[in-house]
Design a protein around this nucleic acid. Structure first.
Lengths: 221, 221, 221, 221
DNA sequence: TATGAATGAGTTTTCATTCAT
DNA sequence: GATGAATGAAAACTCATTCAT
């Protein structure tokens, strides 16, 4: 199996490993401010996000925040970058995900999402806030669209591989199917944010599997 | 077919018909303020919702707004009520939906959603804003949860009828299936808000139908 | 003697007389804020002009200032208008100025300026501040230029009349002479602001008179 | 002709010649900061003068500025000294001014001013800013007054010499005439700053000459 | 000497809310 | 009912200044 051109779960290098060594004091301060903003967006939403609170949580003066970020909007851009990094970061090794087959990738996508919902629920709330904010902020809309496209790209690769390897049904419409899968994963995500109650991920995964795998009876023909 | 205890599409009475007669001038003012707020939430989100803008759009003085609504929060409550009314209002007759069978109900739910996305897209943006706001406003969380429960109830009724009438597969797990359907519909909704591009509703409906209908090959045995 | 087309000392209608009756409460508030700003500019210059101080001096809340003036710049515009009105307002009747001849007009211009320096010295300080500010504010530069032009216009009329009536020398170059007179009056003004000590106005007036009146010896020929 | 006690055009030694040898790196830094401040005062006025901008224009860190100047006020003092130096610096040799007679000195004063307006207009804008600032800064008022006194002193010397040498009219009131001349030169300066348009310097010079020179007709008697 | 980092005190401006009329 | 006027509290952002290195 060839490497994916773009892997949604691993599109960018994990910054921690490559840059940690060269992280300056300023970078750390910036990051701590971004993290404070990220937390506060998750807790209060953009509606009640106050730079003063962000600075306080990061343990610095409000003027210090403006030393690192020209404006509130600039700080939010930092949060967006951080969230995008988070989403495209590698899945935890603890999950022992099996990436050896296309179906494995599909399952990994679901299970990694479940894992993240349990371990880092803020991520999805902040994502929701950003999606809503993207309604009125064109540059954010662009970022969201790109996130979508990377996702589509990754799914396209999985499906192509699955069909090529004969694991998925031969008559699969790549684009249509990828879109459907994304709708399902977004449904899972949004349902979680909406009702805070766990969704039957495995059940939803089965739905997706039924979409891509050959029908059992058919195989016998 | 017995009447559903609660019909998601028609849970509450259409206010127009029953109350129009008694609608006072004050009610109209309140409504025009709520509508202005609703529009502005769709356009600017809660983040940039200003009572002064609401008053201006409604064509009244800011003090007048406070004559009708004790506070901004009170006005938002009005918007929530309005949105809940909208969601539970009857589907347009133009759609010529067929409510004669359980499957018809299911299809109607999808097609009505599609229709609303096309004709009243603000509704879904405001819904998204409210879902995000419910993260930090317990009373709103309650409203969202109740919306969910009504929906579950309605779907429960459809599925029960479908099984009883033999239209749906006999081994259907009512609660699990209802939840899955809701996840799919929420996925459709959220995808629309996320990427602004139309979703393949009919394709998603087929997925749901496959969930509830007996498997073609199996029925013949 | 025909009426001047534009009289620098009386270009605009005295607003007090015509509009006093219709002065609303809001107009008074606006005016008191402008007056407070005017005083503070005279005392502290634009460098140390603070809206908070203006509001305090006018006896209102800082938010009230913004109820009447959209911004600090807007308030300053109000001060500019006020100063322009002041400069083009009629001379005090107490001065018993003689406007019956062109020379009388010229003398009146000087004596009215002297009178104003003694009774309303702030006027000249604020004018100086505005002239300096006009270096970097094009719209203000326009206002200053217009002030100059009105002045030129009035002087042009005086000189024309003086020549026509034979009171001034026949070979007078109108534009050049008017400009020289303005330079002298500006010199008087600026000297006053510079050194705070009284200038020999009558001596300066004599210089001007020597410019326009026929030379004594020449008349005899 | 004896040397003037104080020569307005050359009151202080040109610092370049005498101190260049001992100019340290620190002096250069101070000077570059003063020059940057001078430029920015001319461009933005005291109202919008920011130490950070000064440091940036001088190409140093804001903290470096405070290493050389204890405070913003201290830096401005440096600018005042610089401007005073500029004003009392020798006239350009290119002008080929004739200082051999008292009238020559008078003409040189005017022509040097014209030359400076053309070649270094910032000087007059900064001067205007300082004059306005002196309204509220007593120590600056003192500096402005001293500048005036030096000027008076120089003019006093010119006039005394002129009368003694018989070039100027014998009945000249020294103080009154010196003051009048200063008012005229200030008028020229202020007019330039006010309206940005060139003034008829030669015409103004003639007015001054008429003040000091014997009347043509009278001499013949 | 020089500076990156940090901040206290302030700056203009905003906003939901109140109140007399 | 409706509103013009008014405001306390807070918002984002600024700025001269300090200090450890």
């Amino acid at each position: 199996m060839s490497e994916p051109v773009a892997n949604f779960e691993d599109v960018e290098h994990t910054p921690q490993r490559l840059e940690r060594a060269r992280t300056t004091h300023g970078d750390e301060r910036r990051r701590s401010l971004v993290l404070a903003a990220y937390d506060l967006i998750a807790e209060k939403g953009f509606e009640d996000l106050r730079t003063r609170d962000v600075a306080m949580r990061a343990g610095v003066n409000i003027a210090t925040l403006h030393y690192y970020f020209a404006s509130k909007e600039d700080l939010i851009d930092g949060v967006v970058d951080y969230l995008l990094d988070l989403f495209s970061s590698e899945a935890s090794r603890d999950l022992q995900l099996d990436f050896s087959t296309p179906l494995g990738h599909l399952q990994a996508m679901f299970r990694n999402t479940v894992y993240r919902m349990r371990t880092m629920p803020k991520m999805f709330v902040v994502l929701g806030e950003l999606v809503m904010r993207s309604q009125r902020h064109p540059e954010l809309e662009g970022a969201m669209r790109r996130m979508d496209e990377q996702w589509m790209h990754y799914l396209g690769w999985i499906l192509t591989e699955g069909v090529a390897q004969g694991q998925f049904r031969a008559d699969l419409d790549l684009e249509t199917t990828a879109k459907k899968i994304i709708v399902v994963v977004k449904g899972v995500t949004f349902s979680y944010v909406w009702s805070r109650q766990e969704v039957d991920f495995e059940g939803m995964l089965q739905i997706v599997e039924r979409l891509v795998l050959p029908e059992p009876g058919q195989g016998e023909l």
